[in-house]
Nucleic acid binder design. Structure first.
Length: 500
RNA sequence: GGUCCUGUGGCCGAGUGGCUAGGCAGAGCUCUGCAAAAGCUCCUACAGCGGUUCGAAUCCGCUCGGGACCUCCA
């Protein structure tokens, strides 16, 4: 089996993944800024890296997955108003800053649970690591790559660039950067326009503030990730993930800070997910086209034709490669919803097939089919190893759907496949769909509660049908249909049901 | 303006130079008391123009279109 290949944003090519410490992986992913509700765009990185996390574990790695919570609030527009996003919103909502942060952190966690993402190993907060951030800034100053002005500290990009490659990750050229950076107010403190804040003096009205060697203030945005990644993953670690929009300046700055402090490049593999667009435009506050997750799940948004289940969103995201843009539309989501349902219905029906009692032979009577199934199973890790191609993994599983259904319905006899192949296929599907891709049936939970009631109604309907009392049998089916429950007669005389 | 990405059938989306991606929608058939589901079959595209090659959606060039970043952003 070929080894895992990861596209590295730093080198712009796919590379074989070799961890620093054999058997262990350190992974850092930029987490949410909890100054507001998460939206659909936020779902992409967390689902993407959740699958990467799951897959690395499946490969046998012990993974430390660190995903921060940005609760300290960084600048709305650096240098201009020096407003802290969180403080500003808190005043509006008349909440304590930490109260606000707590509220949106809880909401974020709830949404992540809806998406069936695994919690990270460590979820550090920026406010909980002020000491580490100050320590790091002090080291950068000591090394001569930062300077203090009026209680604020700035990173000296020009000096860094004279000895290091600033802009390597994002493809920036330092000289161009200096001339193309937009004119902003309050830049006079900086020696150079490309410099960025490590620590910012707090204005009197600023609510979130900490004591520092340079006076009362708050940390710059980029330093938190450097400080927390260093603390929990070391001076150098394997994977750093995040959205493509963070490439510059966030990740570029992170590299610069960490490199000065730790004397080596902090990250071996940079992985960036692409954006979710809506009508071809990136979803973002500045475009006024944001769909919050709560709105998505409830359908309460003018753009939405209906509510969409978190699993549908997860499936929708995994149907495309993480490095491509993903365009949102009701039609695309509706298609995903139907596709997921068909997939999960087929798979769950197939799980119920018992190869030992269904007459499966030891060898399998259909060698061609046997080989095809084995071939498809073998492809799954190949695709996943190719830079986490979840889209192709799903396409491959979909190719099995007709077979699963025809076995379940008895059209293809279980004897066509050997018992071991059937068992293997069942566990393979579970492994890939549930364990690695983290997909769950939309209605699995609700079904359990209704199971007993449904069995009763199915019994009655069977009796009625047996007596050719179609009035009663249709009544049961039709009334259930109006309640959103579909009854289906199966080939062998059995009945199954699904929720709409 | 600079850097980079991208343009695939009605829609969404994979595609490592040669072989059917897949999903959704649509059409036909089978099964069926009816319906739904399911199975089978069909719909075979690669923005345009050149070039390289025995052969290109895939490589190169140009043109046109779309997008991201350069400012907070997943």
């Amino acid at each position: 089996m070929q080894s895992l290949q990861i596209y590295n944003s730093l080198t712009r090519q796919k590379e074989a993944f070799v961890p620093l410490v054999p058997g262990h992986v350190g992974m850092y992913v930029c987490g949410p800024t909890v100054s507001g509700e998460s939206h659909l765009g936020h779902a992409r990185p967390y689902v993407t890296f959740d699958v990467i996390y799951r897959y690395l574990q499946h490969l046998g790695f012990k993974v430390r997955y660190v995903r921060n919570i940005t609760d300290a609030g960084h600048f709305e527009e650096e240098g201009r108003a020096a407003t802290d996003k969180i403080a500003e919103k808190a005043q509006l909502e008349k909440l304590e800053p930490m109260e606000l942060v707590q509220k949106y952190t809880n909401l974020f966690h709830w949404a992540m649970e809806q998406f069936n993402t695994l919690p990270p190993s460590i979820e550090p907060t920026a406010t909980g690591h002020i000491v580490e951030q100050i320590g790091m800034i002090e080291e950068i100053i000591k090394a001569g790559y930062a300077y203090e002005v009026n209680g604020s500290v700035y990173f000296d990009v020009k000096k860094y660039a004279s000895t290091h490659e600033y802009g390597k990750l994002s493809g920036r050229v330092i000289d161009e950067l200096l001339t193309t950076t937009r004119e902003l107010e309050g830049q006079e403190e900086k020696r150079d326009r490309a410099d960025f804040a490590l620590w910012k003096a707090a204005a009197p009205e600023h609510i979130m503030r900490w004591k520092s060697p340079w006076g009362v203030g708050y940390p710059g945005w980029h330093i938190e990730c450097s400080a927390m990644a260093t603390k929990y993953l070391g001076a150098q670690f394997d994977i750093h993930g995040g959205g493509m929009d963070l490439l510059f300046p966030h990740h570029e700055s992170e590299i610069a800070q960490s490199t000065i402090c730790n004397h080596q490049a902090p990250v071996r593999y940079w992985v960036h997910n692409n954006m979710i667009t809506i009508n071809g435009r990136k979803m973002g506050k500045s475009y006024n086209n944001v769909i919050k997750l709560t709105e998505l799940f409830s359908g309460q948004h003018p753009i939405l034709a209906k509510a969409f289940h978190p699993m549908t969103i997860r499936f929708f995201i995994l149907q495309t490669h993480y490095s491509s843009t993903l365009d949102f539309s009701n039609e695309a989501l509706l298609a995903a919803e139907k596709g997921l349902k068909r997939l999960m219905d087929a798979v769950e029906g197939f799980y119920k097939v018992n190869p030992d009692t269904a007459g499966a032979s030891a060898a399998g009577s259909n060698a061609e089919l046997e080989a095809k199934v084995k071939g498809l199973i073998d492809e799954l890790p190949v695709f996943m190893n190719d830079d986490f191609s979840t889209a192709r993994v799903l396409a491959t599983i979909f190719e099995l759907v007709p077979l699963l259904n025809s076995i379940k319905d008895g059209i293809t006899t279980t004897g066509a496949l050997s018992a071991s192949t059937i068992t293997n296929l069942q566990s393979t599907l579970r492994l890939w769909l549930e364990t690695i891709l983290g997909l769950k049936s939309v209605q699995a939970a609700d079904q359990e509660k209704l199971q007993g009631v449904m069995e009763l109604l199915i019994d009655i309907r069977k009796e009625a049908k047996g007596k050719r009392d179609f009035m009663t049998s249709d009544k049961i089916r039709d009334r259930l249909a109006t309640l959103g429950i579909q009854l289906k007669d199966e080939k062998g005389g059995g009945m199954s049901w699904t929720l709409d």
